[in-house]
């Protein structure tokens, strides 16, 4: 995985430099800027989640979003995912930490899916661009979809583990 990622990026970068040096430098600058922008947010989330995991004991996480928490845990995870606005780069390591801390795959799947596809915070902007109906319908459908993702991923991971 890492070899593919690093190798692929290196090849693309080399091709890009061969074709247009200036554009490639611009790409690197954009990459650095995006990284710089995300770094503080990323640090905060990692620090907070690590702290939270040490404070909450294993049993507590299990009770709230553990595999045994069932659909209530899924609902809770979906709601949290809908109202938060964190980039995937930060969300995935957080989810992995929670899984290690005892969270269930169903609940994590619901969180990830609603985080990406439901945006309560961005809803006013979305309504301005696409109208109330489209925006609300899209978010409501996406919210329910996170339950579908939860049940299918829960099933898949259960078969695999």
């Amino acid at each position: 995985m890492n070899i593919v990622l690093y190798g692929g990026t290196a090849i693309l970068l080399a091709l890009s430099f061969q074709k247009d040096r200036g554009k490639s430098m611009k790409a690197l600058k954009k990459a650095w800027k995006a990284f710089e922008n995300i770094l503080p947010q990323f640090l905060v989330v990692i620090l907070m989640v690590s702290l939270l995991l040490s404070l909450l004991d294993h049993d507590m996480i299990l009770r709230i979003i553990g595999a045994e928490s069932g659909w209530l845990g899924v609902l809770l995870a979906s709601l949290v995912g809908s109202v938060t606005l964190i980039p995937g780069f930060v969300a995935f390591p957080t989810a992995a930490l929670l899984l290690q801390g005892g969270a269930g795959y169903m609940q994590i799947a619901a969180f990830i899916s609603s985080l990406m596809m439901v945006g309560i915070v961005t809803l006013p902007v979305e309504m301005r661009y696409f109208g109330k109906r489209l925006a609300i319908m899209r978010n409501v459908l996406a919210f329910f979809f996170s339950f579908v993702v939860a049940s299918v991923i829960g099933f898949v991971m259960e078969v695999l583990i």
Binding site: L12, S16, S24, A27, K30, A31, W32, A34, F89
Partner: peptide, 14 residues
């Protein structure tokens, strides 16, 4: 993260 962000930069430019 480094390769991921470089990929993003390349996509944005091209």
């Amino acid at each position: 993260l480094p390769p991921v962000f470089i990929l993003m930069g390349l996509m944005e430019v091209w």
